[in-house]
């Protein structure tokens, strides 16, 4: 049943496709569009400007990061400041130790 309707539908579409659509714009069409553009004073959307700004911002951020990294490296060339940073294991063990201490205080 559905196949029959599909063949009818296809025949209809094939026939409709044979009627071409004119590509000829009406006289003065371009002129009307330009007049409307002038009247509306349509700005070109600033997508490119936005993208340009974003890229410039990215370069500035990269430059600042490099400067900050350079300053840190000059101030501490051996990275000793980083050596004193507690690692994850120490932080976790310290937490557990603290919890044990509290537990022993409450339940001696």
């Amino acid at each position: 049943m559905s196949r029959k309707w599909e063949s009818h539908r296809q025949a209809l579409m094939r026939a409709a496709r044979k009627r071409g659509v004119s590509e000829q714009p009406p006289d003065g069409f371009e002129h009307r569009v330009l007049t409307r553009l002038r009247q509306l004073d349509v700005p070109v959307a600033p997508v490119w400007t936005w993208w340009d700004g974003l890229m410039r911002g990215a370069w500035v951020s990269l430059g600042l990061s490099l400067v900050v990294a350079g300053v840190v490296w000059i101030g501490d060339p051996n990275g000793t400041m980083l050596l004193h940073e507690p690692d994850l294991e120490s932080v976790l063990l310290a937490g557990l130790e603290e919890a044990e201490l509290y537990a022993s205080e409450w339940h001696p």
Binding site: F29, V42, V44, A45, W48
Partner: peptide, 14 residues
Amino acid sequence: AQEIWIKAYQKLSG
């Protein structure tokens, strides 16, 4: 068609 061209003009930067 006018709408299409106006949109195209607005989005030219894209």
